[in-house]
């Protein structure tokens, strides 16, 4: 049996020995820190554990989600669990999908100098600058699409020389897309109308009163006749 290999990591500058192969988050915990700020879903969805780090002998400042990245020997790291960023307040009912709507709520978007630092700071590898540029030209659908996988960790906003709050602006773009550019589902409208007219009340009432054995039979029948994949 091999011994567990230990590596050195520098958490906020302080040297710690941790077993190799742990995520940055688990390495921080192994080193004795009980995280209150800086851990959320622990699975790459919430953006609570945004981390910046440098590797030994490398000038590049790198970014990661602590829960999704393995700690490496010689890593200099700190979590950035919060980024000050002002969110625009709006009434989604009154917002319209016109071209300059994002600029109206986030005028600083116009300050983008296309340096692409935001894209390089994104632990999700999103094309952040491209969606900011899409906003500038009023292409809300593109901005919504390109920003969709954003976990709102805020690293883009922390690094931007134009002081843009990318992830808040993107949230607005997506909501405008979802509400105004994507149209309501006709099937859904119809079904709601049917429910409100009481179309299913009788059937559900019957199911609720059905003897268990009969219901089990009906259930298995339903499972057997499950919809098959359409071509």
């Amino acid at each position: 049996m091999e011994e567990t290999k230990m590596i050195k990591v520098y958490i906020m500058g302080k040297e710690h020995e941790v077993p190799e192969g742990l995520t940055i988050m688990k390495a921080i915990e192994y080193a004795g820190y009980k995280i209150v700020r800086g851990a959320g879903c622990r699975a790459g969805f919430c953006g609570a554990c945004a981390t910046v780090y440098r590797k030994a002998n490398d000038y590049k400042l790198r970014v990661a989600l602590a829960c999704q990245t393995v700690a490496e020997d010689g890593m200099y790291l700190t979590e950035i669990p919060f980024v000050p960023a002002n969110k625009a307040i709006y009434d989604i009912e009154k917002v319209t999908p016109k071209a300059n709507i994002i600029l109206q709520h986030y005028p600083e978007v116009a300050r983008c100098v296309a340096c692409n630092t935001c894209t390089k700071s994104c632990p999700q590898d999103l094309k952040v600058m491209d969606y900011i540029q899409a906003m500038k030209r009023g292409d809300i659908a593109k901005a919504a699409e390109l920003s969709f996988d954003c976990v709102q960790c805020g690293l883009c906003a922390a690094r931007c020389p134009a002081e843009i709050v990318h992830y808040h602006a993107a949230q607005l773009a997506r909501r405008i897309y979802g509400k105004y550019i994507a149209k309501p589902s006709p099937n859904l409208e119809k079904r709601i109308k049917e429910i409100e007219e009481g179309k299913y009340d009788e059937e559900i009432k019957k199911l609720k009163q059905m003897p268990l054995e009969e219901m089990k039979k009906k259930y298995m029948e339903q499972q057997k006749n499950a919809e098959k994949e359409r071509d």
């Binding site: 071209a99 300059n100 500038k136 030209r137 009023g138 292409d139």
Partner: peptide, 8 residues
């Protein structure tokens, strides 16, 4: 194109 040519 530039931004304006995609909107106004």
């Amino acid at each position: 194109p530039g931004c304006s040519l995609k909107s106004d």
